[in-house]
Amino acid sequence: MYKHILIATDGSELSLKGLRQGLGLAKLSGAKVTALTVIEPLRPQVAQAAQMAGIDDPVGRYDLQVDEMMKERLAAVQAEAAEQGVPVELIHEIDDSPAEAILRTANLQGCDLIVMSSHGRRGLQKLLLGSQTSEVLVKTAVPVLVVR
């Protein structure tokens, strides 16, 4: 069936559902699993505003916060994988576009399935909020399992 599954997670409760589905599928099919979490970099305008507000080294502080957040997020992924008895490789990326990071990682890792969650927004709400899931679906040739 599938040999290498990429599971994209943002640490939300909904993405935990996707993680569980992806790990369950990997367990049934004997697939290798890579879990990816992506966070956007600190915007220069935000760093500049923080400096103007008197915050020393906003980039360094942001990096520390990101490291802490990623440790927590990846620990949750590792715990869920251990509970299901599925080994998982953990990857953390910083990218302006989570969808691009997902596509790039799936390509580089040779994944034959991407598992991700979606809130299922439609219409104006989807347009205003954007959709990383929609972007991945449009730009990939790899099958995508969308969990809601």
Rank of each mutant, 00 (worst) to 15 (best):
T34E: 00
Y62F: 14
C111R: 02
H4S: 11
K3A: 14
N107M: 12
A53W: 05
M116N: 02
R148P: 04
V77Y: 01
P44N: 06
A79M: 12
H92M: 13
A106L: 07
T140N: 09
H4R: 14
L129V: 04
T105H: 05
A53E: 06
L90Q: 09
G22M: 03
A26C: 09
R73A: 08
S15F: 07
M116C: 05
Q125T: 10
N107P: 07
L74R: 10
V38E: 00
G60Y: 15
E93G: 09
L23I: 04
G30T: 12
E135I: 08
I102L: 08
A81V: 09
Q21G: 06
V88A: 03
R20G: 06
Q84K: 11
V147Q: 01
A8I: 07
K17N: 05
P143F: 05
V66R: 14
G110N: 14
G24L: 11
L113M: 11
K139S: 08
T133N: 03
R148I: 07
V66L: 12
M116L: 14
K32C: 10
D56A: 15
Q45G: 03
L108E: 13
Y2S: 08
E72F: 10
N107A: 12
L14Y: 07
V88K: 00
V46T: 14
I102R: 00
Q78W: 03
A99I: 06
L25G: 06
S97Y: 00
V136Q: 02
E93Y: 10
L137M: 09
V115T: 03
S131V: 04
V77D: 00
T105C: 12
K3I: 12
L74A: 05
M70V: 15
R121S: 03
T37R: 09
G54C: 12
H4G: 08
E93F: 10
L145T: 09
Q84F: 04
T105A: 06
A79Y: 08
H92C: 10
K71I: 11
D56P: 08
P44S: 09
D112L: 11
I55V: 15
A31K: 00
L108N: 11
Q125M: 11
K3C: 13
S29C: 15
L129E: 00
L19T: 03
L103Q: 08
I55L: 15
L42K: 12
G18M: 04
T34D: 00
D63E: 14
A26I: 08
K139M: 06
L127N: 04
E13Q: 14
M1D: 12
A26G: 08
L74S: 07
Y2K: 14
L103K: 07
L103P: 14
G24K: 11
Q125L: 10
D67E: 15
M70H: 06
Y62A: 05
A49Q: 14
S15K: 01
C111T: 09
L127C: 02
S131I: 03
S134P: 02
T140W: 07
L113W: 11
A82E: 13
T34N: 00
V115Y: 04
G60S: 12
R122Y: 11
Q45S: 03
V59M: 07
R20Q: 09
V142C: 08
V142S: 06
Q65G: 14
D56V: 15
G85P: 01
D56K: 14
S97T: 04
T105L: 11
G130A: 06
E72V: 11
L64H: 14
G85Q: 08
D10L: 05
A49D: 08
M1Y: 10
A99F: 04
